[in-house]
Design a protein around this nucleic acid. Structure first.
Lengths: 199, 199
DNA sequence: CGACACATGTAACACGTTACATGATTTG
DNA sequence: CAAATCATGTAACGTGTTACATGTGTCG
C-alpha cells in the first residue's frame, strides 16, 4: 500500500500526469527504490477504480492528468494520521533465514551471519557515500530533505542490522559453550499433538 | 520469497505435512508473524509446481507428506549461501510516508513523526516483554534460540526506527530555522523537461 | 539517422493473504 | 454435546513488478 499512498500524496499537491508522478516520486526516494513507469499507470488505474483519484483532462501536449477526489483526500488524511503498524511488521527475509539456519542441522550459521555482515557493511558504505553527495547537492529544497531522510533511515536500519548480526554471533558462541542438545531431539519430527490453548 | 524458503528449509529436516510445517514455522517466528495454514498449502503447491518439493506418500493417519527434491536442496543451499540484498531494500512504508509528509504542503509532519514514535515505543515495549518471557521459557532448544533472535531483531530494528524519528525531528527544526523556501517553488508542478543523463 | 528521454498503456505473473468449505478427533 | 484443535484444500483478491508495444520529440 506504499506506492498507492505515495502517488496519492503527490497528487494532493495538484493534478499530475503519470510520467511526472514517477519523476517526482524518484526525486524523493532516489536511486534506492527506482519506480517502473508502468507501475504508475497500473496504480493510477487501481486508484481510479477505488474512487480515490479521477481523470482531470488533458494538456495541450496530450498529457493525461489525474486529480485526487474527496474520498482520496480523506484516505490520505487518515494515512498520515495513523502510524505504520510495527506490531505486525512485514516478514523479514533475513530474520526468517537466520531462524531457519539456527534450527536446521547442517547449515553453516556463522557463515550465513558473516556473509550477510559483509554485504550489509558494503551497503552501509554505499549509503554513507550517497549521503555525502546528497548533502553536497542540497539546495534547501524539500525534495532534498526527503531524500536525505530516506537515506538516513536506510543507514540507521543497516547499522542496526549489523549490530544485530554481531549480537547473533555472540549468542551462537554462548550456546556452543553450553551443554549440547539432548540426543535425538533434533531429528524428531515432533508432530503437533493436541496442544492446549495457551490463553 | 521468505515463506517459500522457510518451508523449504523446514522440509530439509525430513518429510513433513502441511499442518506440521505451520506449527514448526510458528515455533521459530512466534506470534509476530502468524502463518495462515491455508498459505502453507498454497505455497507447497507452488513449490511442487517449481519442482523444489514432491509429495512423499501418506501417513497411516492420512497425513500428506512432502519432501525436498534435489533441485530444492540446491535452491536452499544457494539461499543460505547468498546474503539478503540490502542494496535494493523493500520499499518501506514509513520512509515513503515521511518523504511525502515533508514534501506535500499542509501536512503536520511533526504530528506524523510523534504519532509514529508513540506507536513504535509501544511496540518496543511489547517486544521487550516478550523477550523476557522467551528467556524465562528457554529450554535450550534451537527453536527457542531462533525465536529469541527474531525478537531481538525486531527490538534492534524498532530502536533504530525511534532513533531515526528523533533524528528527523531535529532535522525538521534545523530546517525551520533556516531561510524559507523561495516563494512559488512549492506549488510549481515542475514538468520533467528534457533532463540530461546524470551518468 | 540513431540513441535517448518523454509518454501512455496493457498483459501477465508472483507472492502473500484471507475467507470459505469440509471433516475427523479430542476434551470439558 | 459443544467447542476447540487437528488437518487439507480451494477460490479469489490485492499489490508489486516486469516485459512488451507504441509513438513523439530532441540532440549530437
Amino acid at each position: 500500500m506504499s506506492i498507492r499512498h505515495g502517488l496519492l500524496a503527490l497528487l494532493d499537491q495538484g493534478p499530475r500526469y503519470g510520467y511526472q508522478l514517477r519523476t517526482e516520486f524518484e526525486a524523493r526516494t532516489g536511486a534506492t527504490w527506482p519506480l517502473n513507469v508502468g507501475q504508475v499507470y497500473t496504480t493510477l488505474g487501481r486508484l481510479e477504480r477505488d474512487g480515490l483519484v479521477a481523470p482531470h483532462g488533458e494538456d495541450e501536449e496530450g498529457h493525461v492528468y489525474y486529480a485526487v477526489t474527496d474520498a482520496g483526500r480523506t484516505e490520505l488524511r487518515s494515512w498520515f494520521d495513523s502510524p505504520v503498524l510495527r506490531t505486525t511488521p512485514p516478514r523479514d527475509e533475513l530474520a526468517i533465514k537466520l531462524a531457519m539456519a539456527v534450527t536446521v542441522p547442517g547449515v553453516d550459521v556463522t557463515g550465513v551471519v558473516q556473509g550477510q555482515r559483509r554485504h550489509s557493511m558494503k551497503a552501509l558504505q554505499d549509503y554513507t557515500r550517497l549521503k555525502g553527495q546528497a548533502i553536497a547537492a542540497d539546495a534547501g529544497r524539500q525534495e532534498d530533505l526527503a531524500w536525505l531522510l530516506v537515506l538516513e533511515q536506510l543507514i540507521f536500519q543497516t547499522e542496526a542490522e549489523i549490530r544485530w548480526l554481531d549480537h547473533c554471533e555472540s549468542r551462537l558462541v554462548q550456546r556452543a559453550a553450553e551443554p549440547p542438545e539432548p540426543p535425538g531431539a533434533t531429528e524428531a519430527p515432533a508432530k503437533p499433538k493436541r496442544r492446549r490453548s495457551l490463553l
